[in-house]
Design a binder for these strands. Structure first.
Lengths: 117, 117
DNA sequence: TTTAGTGTGTAGTAATTACTACACATGAAT
DNA sequence: ATTCATGTGTAGTAATTACTACACACTAAA
């Protein structure tokens, strides 16, 4: 269940090997939380922190924010707002592509990107 | 700000005109909440209720659940989970189509629907 | 050998979420 | 005239979220 803590600890310790400033205390300091709190989170004793903290953590550790949020079971407010602006449309779209293979969705993303719409 | 309450009250009162069983008390009873609570919500004195209650309300009032949730500022757990299963892909897709006109997205939805993938 | 930095255990808390319970006044039905 | 159903005001609360503060033990450096 506590994927998030394990993942953060592993990543932080990797970085720590080549840069002493990635101690738990210093990272906690830079992202503005108490070391105790980060310790608990990494050890799985507490739930993942707020979106704001996860985003700072992702930035600090060089991780993809969307992925780190997802590991913590969260969807960013940014994405929620995209859905909230056109809920029916987005809901239909998401349900349509839900079971599509990755490559098919990627094709859509790319078509849309260089799209002629 | 309190779109949700106004919307629900209006819809409920519409239904009430042709069906006496859409009184505040009876609707509250059927969806399993206290009349006081529904009253406050409709008058905008309280935040929209939980996803579960919004869904029951949508069903009761014959409203689109995704839309009613959105009016209440919520994205359903169902949609969140679709995103959480492939966060990077879905985040990219949503950001791509965010500013596209409705008809272009609808085209994608349809293409995907009858798609050859 | 004291100082500095490390991680962690225990305890507590402020804010928010999602409600319930009681009491009351008004209007319609019997 | 009384019962019934309506909506609503006030008050309170249990659960969850998102943390902080203090204290301690261990290790490495000066």
């Amino acid at each position: 269940m506590n994927e998030f803590g394990r993942y953060v600890r592993e990543k932080r310790e990797q970085l720590l090997q080549s840069d002493k400033s990635f101690s738990l205390r210093q990272v906690a300091g830079r992202i503005g939380i108490e070391p105790t709190y980060l310790s608990k989170i990494e050890r799985g004793g507490l739930a993942p922190p707020s979106e704001q903290v996860v985003l700072k953590l992702a930035h600090e550790l060089g991780e993809n924010p969307d992925i780190l949020l997802a590991i913590g079971g969260k969807v960013s407010q940014e994405l929620k707002e995209i859905i909230l602006q056109r809920p029916e449309l987005m809901a239909d779209l998401l349900r349509q592509i839900k079971d599509m293979p990755e490559h098919a969705i990627l094709r859509i993303v790319r078509e849309v990107k260089d799209g002629d719409w």
